[in-house]
Computed example of a mutant assay.
Amino acid sequence: MSEVEFSMSTDGVDWAGLRAALVTDRFDNGRTPEQYRRSHENSHAVVFGRVGDGYVANGRILSDGVCNAYLVDIWTAAPYRRRGVGREVVRRLLATVPGQHVALFTDDMTAFYATLGFRAQAGGMSRIVGRWLDDGRG
């Protein structure tokens, strides 16, 4: 993990490069580079992990600034998994929301999040308003 450089700033992010890394690792959900930029810039906090010019980790947290937060887009590139990179991304994000209840959705990483103190809770629901990723901005 020592070769991974972490940043919590969107300054200088190569959004097309980030998207390309996510696509390569099959973690892309169809957002354009511009949508990735807006998603990150509108988040409470972000973390990027880089090795050289390439992206190997990413994560964001949304928060109301008082009592509720939500982890989103937590990703570590396959070659860097099980090396503490994802744990460091989450640690840095959680440090920005002391005293808050933090939620997340995951399909296949429950064991990982359990090691970080998260517990499953029943009753979650979600809905897409209109069409996925179509916010009228083009």
Rank of each mutant, 00 (worst) to 15 (best):
M1Q: 08
E3I: 12
V4I: 14
V4W: 05
V4R: 00
S7D: 12
M8C: 12
S9F: 03
T10K: 02
V13A: 08
A16Y: 03
L18M: 15
R19K: 15
T24K: 15
F27C: 06
F27D: 03
N29R: 09
T32V: 09
T32R: 05
T32N: 07
T32K: 01
P33T: 10
P33Y: 11
E34R: 12
Q35A: 09
H40M: 13
A45E: 08
V47R: 01
G49Q: 04
V51K: 11
Y55H: 02
Y55F: 15
V56E: 04
V56W: 07
I61G: 06
D64P: 12
D64S: 03
A69M: 05
Y70P: 00
L71I: 09
D73V: 07
D73E: 14
I74M: 08
T76H: 04
T76F: 04
T76Y: 06
R81W: 06
R81K: 12
R82K: 13
R82W: 00
G84P: 00
G84D: 06
G84Q: 06
V85M: 06
V89H: 03
R92N: 06
L93D: 03
L93I: 11
A95F: 01
V97R: 01
G99E: 09
L104P: 00
F105R: 10
D107P: 02
D108F: 12
L116Q: 15
L116D: 02
A120C: 01
Q121E: 15
G123H: 14
M125S: 13
M125Q: 13
S126K: 08
I128G: 00
W132S: 01
L133M: 11
D134N: 13
D134T: 03
G136T: 10
R137W: 01
